[in-house]
Design a protein around this nucleic acid. Structure first.
Length: 270
DNA sequence: CGTTATGTTCGATG
DNA sequence: GCATCGAACATAAC
């Protein structure tokens, strides 16, 4: 479930359960998640250290290791981060877990193994290497920046929103929600959008993501808690527009399925 | 059994 | 160069 709001909640979990406590053990139950890094090297770099800072950029979570670089976490489509107590068993699909001196643990879970856990010397350099644009909720993502990017891009607005090098943190689900709130058709070309539309888009990015974090995100369970007027709970086959009750339309692109209201979100292409 | 899935990357193609 | 499409990755859940 990890798009920006989900990863932000993981960041809060990490902050609450993983900072300032000495790591006394590391359990790598599936080393594939580490890529080329060996579990031995990974473990040796963490044991005996503390995590001292939790930072998020887009869909990436970074934890500063006491005087030794950063731990990096990316969640793919099915990843997560969970804290669990001493005697409890690790959660399902746990791939890496950290054991703290307090007896608590933190587990990185990932059913489909699409995702990465790694180490990097420097957080800013890592963000640059990953070619990540400004975080969607960060101060560097200004309206002016969005306007400039939209003017030169030849993409449609949905793939624009999901392009991490343009703005980091938005995926398929929240792109649909943001476009719904802005009443924009997913295929609208950003270069053809009016200043008013771009401003509305910019505002919706902030309000949607913040509302999702506040509501506790977590796409599946999110249904009940979704803010009023959100598309999300209806975002399924046969779902209805929260505004006009029209049956939602589906649109496939790049192997992804998008949902939108064919009546409220009108085509503005060409 | 077939389809689909919250992400990203790579190669082919337009 | 740029954009889009499908496939691939790995593993369920429906």
């Amino acid at each position: 479930m990890p798009e920006l709001p989900d990863v932000e909640l993981f960041r809060q979990i990490l902050e609450k359960h993983g900072l300032g406590k000495k790591i006394v053990g590391v359990d790598v139950s599936d080393a594939r998640i580490l890529g080329k890094l060996t579990s031995r090297d990974f473990t040796h770099r963490l044991v005996g250290k503390k995590l001292v800072e939790a930072r998020r950029h887009g869909k990436h979570l970074l934890a500063k290791i006491e005087s030794d670089g950063w731990l990096t976490l990316h969640f793919g489509m099915t990843g997560g981060l969970e804290a669990f107590a001493g005697q409890e068993a690790a959660p399902p699909y746990s791939r890496v877990s950290l054991d703290f001196v307090s007896g608590g643990h933190l587990a990185y879970t990932n059913r489909r193994m699409i995702g990465r856990v790694g180490l990097t010397p420097d957080a800013d350099a890592f963000i640059a290497e990953e070619k990540l644009g400004p975080d969607a909720l960060g101060g560097e993502f200004t309206l002016a920046r969005l306007q400039k990017a939209a003017a030169v891009s030849r993409r449609d607005v949905k793939s624009f929103l999901m392009a991490q090098e343009i703005v980091a943190g938005i995926g398929n689900i929240y792109a649909d929600e943001i476009l719904f709130q802005t009443r924009l058709h997913p295929n609208t070309l950003t270069s053809a959008m009016t200043p008013q539309q771009l401003e509305a888009l910019y505002r919706a990015i902030g309000t949607v993501l913040k509302a999702a974090i506040k509501a506790g995100a977590g796409a599946e369970q999110f249904g009940e808690r979704a803010p009023k007027g959100f598309l999300l709970p209806e975002r399924k086959k046969g779902g209805h527009c929260p505004r006009c009750r029209t049956t939602l339309a589906l649109l496939k692109s790049g192997g992804r399925t998008g949902y939108f209201c064919p009546r409220c979100q009108t085509e503005t292409r060409t």
